[in-house]
């Protein structure tokens, strides 16, 4: 498992897709946070593509949770895309999907 991360962003109109490649953890968090911070005002939907995500720790999950709460305040929606089964199980156990669903339901 590599100890690095590559994060890049693709903008298509009001949609923004963030691709995360590698390990999203305590040591690699900063570049992910930078991309999140640079999400432009007026964006309607942020898609986080986890297809190439190998591992996520609690700090990485914390960043996702914070983004979900921020999305509610800034009125954009979030979708987690192409999540591998193992990571999907971790996010499910911790409650990420339930938080996402609850907050987005409140918003709509």
């Amino acid at each position: 498992m590599k100890d690095t991360i590559q994060v890049y962003k693709e903008i298509d109109g009001l949609f923004c897709t963030i691709y995360v490649d590698g390990v999203l953890d305590y040591a690699t968090m900063d570049s992910f946070i930078e991309e999140i911070k640079s999400i432009e005002r007026g964006t309607e939907k942020v898609i986080i593509n986890f297809e190439a995500l190998e591992f996520i720790d609690s700090t990485g999950i914390g960043a996702i949770i914070n983004l979900v709460h921020e999305a509610k305040d800034k009125r954009f929606s979030i979708e987690l895309e192409a999540v591998r089964q193992e990571i999907n199980d971790v996010l499910g156990t911790i409650g990420v999907f339930e938080i996402l669903e609850t907050l987005q339901k409140e918003e709509s």
């Binding site: 911790i94 339930e98 907050l103």
Partner: peptide, 9 residues
């Protein structure tokens, strides 16, 4: 059993 982390909701 379901339940989100403390500080989640």
């Amino acid at each position: 059993i379901k339940g989100v982390m403390l500080g989640g909701l």
